[in-house]
């Protein structure tokens, strides 16, 4: 999918640019937007580059740096926090051998915090791509990561 295609799909309006850029970013193996791509979105929408760049840096789901194939987003807002999201982070850091904000050497996983993903009823929770995983335990986390490792290779 190229920039023009995704914009056409979204009706090429400034208001739907966020959705278009997100979908485009998700379609890329490394989950980020390059300078050229950001400029292309500006050119196609007729918005100033400074504005589109402003959007990319304002909204937390965009990235300007290459990330892993799987972005493991751990919620740590209060409902998850009081249900042990700290332990979820520790478990993931141990399993993946990286710290929060880092990407594994094999380019498979990036570990990030996310603001609440609206899954407080299954706290602690995390989101990977389009999938939400709730009621996390160390065993559950291990099997999720194991499965993705297999699938991602």
């Amino acid at each position: 999918m190229d920039v023009k295609e995704v914009l056409d799909k979204y009706g090429n309006s400034p208001g739907r640019l966020l959705g278009a850029m997100l979908e485009y970013q998700r379609s890329k193996p490394q989950n980020y937007l390059t300078e050229e791509e950001i400029k292309a979105f500006a050119k196609e929408t007729g918005l100033p580059v400074s504005r589109v760049y402003s959007l990319v840096t304002f909204y937390s789901l965009f990235s300007e740096v290459p990330r892993g194939k799987y972005i493991v987003q751990v919620c740590h807002d209060v409902p998850c926090h009081v249900n042990g999201s700290v332990n979820v982070v520790a478990e993931l850091e141990k399993l993946l051998g990286i710290k929060m904000g880092e990407t594994t050497d094999d380019g498979l996983f990036t570990l990030e915090y996310t603001s609440c993903i609206g899954c407080c009823e299954m706290a602690p929770a995390m989101q990977i791509g389009e999938t939400v995983y709730g009621n996390l335990t160390p065993e559950k986390i291990a099997s999720i990561i194991e499965e993705l490792r297999r699938a991602g290779k």
Partner: peptide
């Protein structure tokens, strides 16, 4: 010309050219 805009958010926000 629209060469300057807010970049980032919260107390990390800066006003500067794109990139």
């Amino acid at each position: 010309l629209s060469l300057l805009d807010y970049v980032g958010r919260s107390d990390e926000v800066e006003i500067k050219p794109a990139f």
